[in-house]
Structure formats: C-alpha cells, structure tokens
C-alpha cells in the first residue's frame, strides 16, 4: 500500500435542504492519478470546492499528507502543496502571462508590506528566482514565447496551459484539475493529454474532475464515480466502464435528457 496523499472521510455538504455531497469517502495514493466523474449535478464541483476549501464541509473530514485540513482556509492550502486549476479559466486579466505564473509562487515571499519594504537583497533575489521559475514553468507547457502576452490575446487552450503552469509553479504534491478539457478542440485536448501523461510519469499525484469520460479513462489510474451526491463506484477504469450502476447513472441521465 502506497502512502496516502489525500483522504476524504464522509464529506458532506448541504445547501439548505439539498444534500449536494452525501458522506463521500475516498483516498488518493502518492503518485496516483484519480478521476472524479459523474453526470450533471452529481456533486463533483462541490466535492472539488470542499477539498480546495472554497466552501466548508457540513460534516466529515479532509486529510492532506496526514494533516487534518477540514477547517484550513483556501489560501492556506496552496502553501501546503495543494494546487488547483479552474473549470472556467480564472487567470488575472490585468497581469501578463508571466506575472500570472509568478503569482503561483506568491507563498514563497515573506508576508506583509513592511516585510516587503525591508526585504532588501533577499527579496530582490526572491523576485529574480520567481521570474526564472515562472519562465521554466511556461517553457514546460510550451508557452515561453508568450510570457509578455496579455490574457485576452491567448486562446482557451493556451489559457488552460497557463493555469496549469501557475498551479505547478510551487511544486505541489497534489494537482487538482477541474474539467481541464472542457471547451477544448481535439488537438488541444490531445496536447493536454500528453502534458498530463508527462506529469504522471514524473510521479505527481493528481485529481481530475472531468465530463469527458474517454479522456479521463485514459488519463487516470483510478476513477471515483458520483451520482446525486453519493459515491457509486471507486475502481480502476476498466471495471468502472462496465459497472452496471455507473452505466445506469449515465444512461438514466441521457433518458432524462431525451424526455425533455
């Protein structure tokens, strides 16, 4: 049994009377690529928000690298080694591509304005190192020549890669990707797949939330399936693909769509 990176224990989230996530538990081992799938409204995005701390859990616990993270605020999770990207790309429009990636390294700087002012040479050296590291990350995703570009000058496929570069900058222990293939064309999706395969080979632990079932079956070692807030399957891709509960959840939804 490999070391556990992330452990979700009975995570529950209620919105008034609606239970969006109902006592879901799963684990991600070190170096594992885990997929989280499910039909629309299954609670995937809410689950993602609970793990990243965007929303608090109503009940249950989140453990990361053996530490209880349940009540840690969102901004405290990135310095601990948890990095994420966003489904709707959330890059900072007022900053250049390079500056966006540099923000991924923000926790390396001493906190506070006065400390920044008194930082002197150490701060200047950190700034230089941050620039170099951010350029390295852009180079990794193949966008080093676009470092000075503005966000609105980039295509969606490029923006996703910038988002990934930003998330990777701190050297996280767990990379969480929220629907990274959403809205991408085939060529861009293939390019993304190659990128994720490279990261997986480097031994990075990943959690992917995805709509595109084919994409996730290829990219992951293990798949957690959610339907209407509960976990209905948690297995290797080959067995999840043939699981009757999973098939009926997806087909049930298709039937519901057809009825409209």
């Amino acid at each position: 049994m490999t070391e556990t990176i992330l452990k979700v224990e009975g995570a529950t989230r209620r919105f008034g009377g609606l239970v969006a996530v109902n006592a879901v538990s799963f684990e991600i081992g070190k170096g594992m690529a885990c997929g989280l799938i499910g039909p629309n409204g299954a609670g995937k995005s809410t689950m993602f928000d609970l793990i990243t701390g965007v929303r608090p859990v109503s009940a249950g616990d989140i453990w990361f690298k053996g530490q209880r993270m349940t009540n840690a605020p969102a901004h405290a999770r990135s310095p601990m080694g948890m990095a994420r990207t966003f489904q709707i790309v959330r890059l900072f429009r007022g900053l250049s591509v390079l500056e966006n990636v540099m923000l991924g390294l923000h926790p390396r700087f001493a906190d506070g304005i006065i400390r920044a002012l008194l930082g002197g040479k150490a701060r200047a050296a950190q700034e230089t190192a941050t620039r170099a590291r951010a350029m390295e990350m852009l180079d990794f995703v193949g966008l080093a020549d676009r470092a000075d570009a503005r966000i609105e000058e980039m295509t969606l496929g490029q923006l996703r890669l910038v988002d990934i570069a930003r998330a990777l900058a701190l050297g996280p222990d767990l990379l969480m990707l929220d629907e990274p293939a959403a809205g991408l064309n085939d060529a861009e999706t293939d390019n993304l797949g190659v990128m994720l395969e490279r990261l997986r080979k480097q031994g990075l632990s990943m959690l992917l939330v995805e709509h595109d079932v084919d994409f996730i079956m290829n990219a992951c070692d293990r798949i957690v399936v959610m339907d209407r807030g509960t976990k209905i399957a948690d297995d290797v891709p080959a067995r999840v693909r043939t699981d009757p509960k999973v098939i009926s959840a997806y087909i049930g939804q298709r039937a519901a769509h057809a009825a409209h």
Partner: peptide, 23 residues
C-alpha cells in the same frame, strides 16, 4: 513587487487569488 501582483490578483479574482495562497 509581489505585493502589487497580489493586489491585482485580488482585484481581478478573489477566489483564484486565495487558491494561490494570497490572504
């Protein structure tokens, strides 16, 4: 400086700024 980057990040998207470790 990095302070200015954090400020602009808060202006453009508070949730994303927090996810990157900006308090």
């Amino acid at each position: 400086s990095h302070v200015g980057r954090a400020m602009q990040a808060i202006r453009d998207d508070e949730t994303a700024a927090a996810a990157l470790g900006v308090h």
